[in-house]
């Protein structure tokens, strides 16, 4: 399994996983996968848990970014939203394309607006911030009471926005925060809408 992380990952994660850096080559596959899961969990926590919600907290945590987490969340979201639909494959393709291309386009948008972001770090963050929406989609797929669905969707949308907006907003110059944040909200709101109206 190819870890999609940059080399600093090993050094940074060593104190947590207690695996010597130089011996990762001949460890068992399960250990590698386990380490990836630990990374995903740690990144998820640092992105989404409302402790230390400063930009640098997130940025430091995401210094060892990974793309496994975003990939998993994108896939789960697309699968959840497409199950039970008449043309499930089309919906799957649509959702997956939206989240994958959306993360890339939003990052490019921030860079174009004059922000300085590490590209994959931002993609990673935007991917992890899909997690609340995944939760919302799963709950909305299971529960059919309307006000519960609306409440859950709004809550999860708020959670996702609070995790994303500081990061994106602080990356650009002062007068342009809303320009950078608006497209992010456009994507998240449309995804939340998808989750809410899903039958």
């Amino acid at each position: 399994m190819l870890p999609p992380s940059p080399p600093p990952t090993l050094g940074a994660s060593a104190p947590h996983s207690a695996i010597p850096d130089e011996y990762t080559l001949d460890e068992s596959i399960w250990k590698t996968i386990g380490r990836d899961f630990v990374t995903i969990g740690r990144n998820l926590r640092s992105v989404l848990i409302p402790i230390n919600w400063k930009f640098h907290g997130q940025a430091q945590a995401l210094r060892n970014w990974d793309l496994w987490g975003p990939l998993v969340f994108m896939l789960v979201l697309a699968i959840v939203l497409s199950t039970g639909e008449k043309n499930a494959s089309a919906v799957f393709a649509m959702v997956f394309a939206e989240v994958a291309l959306g993360a890339i386009v939003l990052t490019i948008n921030v860079i174009l607006l004059g922000g300085e972001l590490v590209f994959f770090q931002a993609v990673c963050l935007l991917g992890y911030c899909l997690f609340p929406l995944v939760v919302a989609a799963i709950i909305c797929a299971a529960v059919s009471i309307k006000w519960v669905r609306i409440l859950v969707t709004v809550l999860c949308l708020t959670w996702a926005s609070f995790a994303t907006i500081p990061f994106i907003g602080n990356a650009v110059p002062q007068g342009r925060k809303s320009l950078a944040v608006y497209p992010v909200m456009l994507m998240y709101v449309s995804l939340a809408w998808l989750a809410m109206v899903k039958s």
Binding site: I111, L112, L113, G114, P173, G175, R176, K177, S178, L179
Partner: peptide, 16 residues
């Protein structure tokens, strides 16, 4: 390089 095209995104919220 994406940054080359910053010229065309050189606007503030107020401008937009």
């Amino acid at each position: 390089n994406v940054r080359r095209y910053r010229e065309y995104f050189d606007v503030d919220t107020k401008d937009v």
